[in-house]
Design a protein around this nucleic acid. Structure first.
Lengths: 221, 221
DNA sequence: TATTTTTATATTGCACATAATTTTATTTAT
DNA sequence: ATAAATAAAATTATGTGCAATATAAAAATA
């Protein structure tokens, strides 16, 4: 079932409930529909086996979340994701990641540290034929640290920006050089978290995000 | 027309187009509906002189933006705004305000500085019987600085959080002590902006936001 | 090839039927 | 007699189909 695999890809950040809304969001994030694509209600209604009203409502919700744009009398489209979007997203992540991380370093439990260790082991076990899975592991790594943060508003903003990021290069696979560099940074972070060293952790995290920004900016426009 | 006045109150952050969505948002921000209130489609349809479908879509959009929560088969409510919300909002503003300000200090024009001066003059001209207007002027002051920022995503997050803040105490009026302190901080900020001193401006801004957080936290729960 | 006209398609607002929930009324038990 | 539990009624949410209007696509004309 190769289709189900691609659905698992971003699972930590996507709802598993199969609402119309969740399905459309999933299809945007996994680039079934890409930036600028028209989202015709009648077509979507057939695709998701429902009538146009639930589709309209899902699109309105997605509009509110910024994944979809709607023009009067002209319908909905996947939001425009371009070079500036990438810059904007990373500048927000550059603010939010340290903020969310700070609290994690102070509140992390032994179980969470173990789970992070496990994820790093999985990352290091990757071979060229499943490099595509690295991004899921990376997502899981950060999601594990942030998802329990008390500021759900901030977590949600972070999540939305990561999803946009994913939508922008859903079909790209990281190269070996980037993966090994990224794993190295994760390990350094984990060591710093172990030591409860907030300043050091945040420093590593900032350059980690910056590195990611630099990597992805090559692919867009 | 006292009703129109209350609409002007937060005008810089609210759309002037009278869409159903904009009207409901306006009524949430100005506390016509308050935290937790049920938003019954049929009732709203009568109130805004339309059918339930446009209402449903507006509510879904507001759900996507975080102003409304929806429970399956039970309908929509104004989102829960409580003590923790205030903390969460201010922690996000504490990140975004400096970020947005930084670029403004570097890019501000002479006309913008003049406009800010004018707003401060208006602030200082306030008398006890129109202290309620201070918050509009405060909004305008910050909106003038941030609204042109290249990162529209960030601007929008800032705007949403400020609107939530407004919704939480739409009927409160600042006391003299807080107003004069706030004006003082605005003046200091403007001086620092004049000098293109980013670090100083951001420092003043941070304590300005912190002061606001401290002030409002007394009123909630 | 560019422009206009015609045709087809989609969006929008509406009314209705069904299913779920909330409210009110009634009954039962303490 | 009062409170809790249950049953009935009213209300509301959800999904569907259908006109009217506007937009997009296709065909025809210059």
């Amino acid at each position: 079932m190769p289709d189900k695999n691609s659905k698992t890809l971003t699972s930590p950040l996507l709802a598993d409930e199969p609402s119309i809304y969740a399905q459309i969001l999933n299809d945007i994030v996994n680039a079934t529909y890409v930036s600028g694509d028209r989202l015709v209600t009648t077509t979507l209604a057939k695709r998701y086996d429902t009538s146009i009203n639930p589709i309209r409502e899902a699109l309105k919700q997605l509009q509110g979340e910024g994944f979809v744009t709607v023009e009067q009398n002209s319908g909905a489209r996947v939001a425009k994701f371009e070079y500036n979007t990438l810059r904007d997203v990373f500048e927000i992540l550059q603010l939010l990641d340290p903020y969310l991380m700070e609290w994690f370093v102070e509140s992390r439990t032994a179980e969470q540290l173990e789970a992070l260790e496990e994820l790093i082991v999985k990352m290091e076990a990757l071979t060229p034929d499943n490099y595509e899975d690295y991004r899921v592991l990376d997502m899981q790594f950060h999601w594990l640290m942030y998802s329990e943060h008390y500021n759900k508003n901030a977590v949600n903003i972070w999540r939305k920006n990561r999803l946009v990021l994913h939508a922008m290069h859903a079909n790209s696979i990281l190269n070996y050089s980037r993966i090994s560099q990224s794993i190295k940074e994760h390990k350094e972070m984990l060591t710093a978290i172990h030591q409860r060293d907030v300043a050091l952790t945040v420093n590593i995290l900032k350059s980690h995000v910056a590195g990611s920004a630099q990597y992805w900016s090559r692919f867009v426009k």
